[in-house]
């Protein structure tokens, strides 16, 4: 009995020391990817034991925070430009940059049948507010403006545009009905590849530059093995399956 107790203690100690081997990683994530990242974090913890803490925001804002010393170790951007800029500013490790997901832009309304499958609703303009993310800071906002430009509607719709600070707020504007429709990420409105509610038009991919979402290892995370482990984890088939399920495309392997 005594021996049993003692071996139990040893096991507990071993477990505790095993816990001490696991580390934490601070991830800055573009607002559109915050939900999928929660799922990925759970899977990452299960497979590696490492904890993941995340801060979500517009990519541009996160850049400014990183530039000013924010304690982030990995950055999951909504574009490839911002990580590139971090590398150029020597705030990120160049060879670590890779595309973890391809974003899909959609026009969404929380009302059923409001948006037709061809997006004719944009031309009829029978709405008061069209929500987009701030095109200066949010890549999905820039893609939305590009798509409107290609459709020849940029000028005529200008007075109806309302801007969310990032793609999450843009989603909020539309989901609360304050804007009848808006450009959001497919991943925000879909679950397992199916639209959750409302109506949607998948923007044809020739109307905007592909939203290549890149990850990069930040200088602050260079010596954190959990940071490297997470970037490796993102490339595993398990993670890629979760990313596709969340409504993203994957970059073609080179």
């Amino acid at each position: 009995m005594n021996l049993f107790k003692r071996s139990g203690l040893v096991v507990a100690l071993l477990l505790a020391s095993g816990q001490a081997w696991s580390a934490e990683v601070q991830v800055a994530v573009a607002a559109n990817f915050s939900k999928p990242l929660e799922v990925l974090a759970t899977a990452f913890k299960a497979s590696s034991g490492h904890e993941l803490n995340m801060s979500a925001g517009a990519s541009g804002k996160l850049y400014a925070q990183i530039e000013n010393g924010a304690p982030f170790e990995v950055f999951l951007s909504a574009d490839s430009k911002t990580p590139q800029k971090l590398v150029e500013a020597q705030l990120a490790v160049a060879e670590s940059q890779f595309t973890y997901a391809l974003g899909k832009l959609v026009l969404w309304s929380s009302t059923q049948d409001y948006i037709d499958p061809q997006g004719e609703v944009l031309k009829k303009q029978e709405f008061k507010h069209l929500a987009i993310a701030n095109p200066q800071t949010a890549p999905y906002g820039a893609a939305a403006v590009e798509a409107l430009d290609h459709l020849g509607l940029k000028k005529s719709l200008e007075s109806k545009l309302v801007q969310g600070e990032n793609i999450s707020q843009t989603y909020d504007f539309v989901s609360t009905g304050n804007a009848e429709l808006g450009f959001v990420a497919w991943s925000q409105v879909a679950q397992e590849g199916v639209l959750k509610a409302g109506s949607v038009w998948q923007i044809p991919e020739d109307l905007y530059t592909p939203i290549q979402q890149d990850a990069v290892l930040l200088l602050k995370g260079k010596d954190n093995k959990a940071a490297q482990a997470f970037l490796d984890f993102l490339k595993t088939p398990q993670a890629q399956q979760l990313i596709t399920k969340a409504g993203y495309g994957l970059a073609k392997p080179h």
Binding site: V162, G164, E165, N178, A179
Partner: peptide
């Protein structure tokens, strides 16, 4: 303002 303004 950030929450209800829409940056117009």
């Amino acid at each position: 303002v950030l929450m209800i303004g829409g940056n117009i």
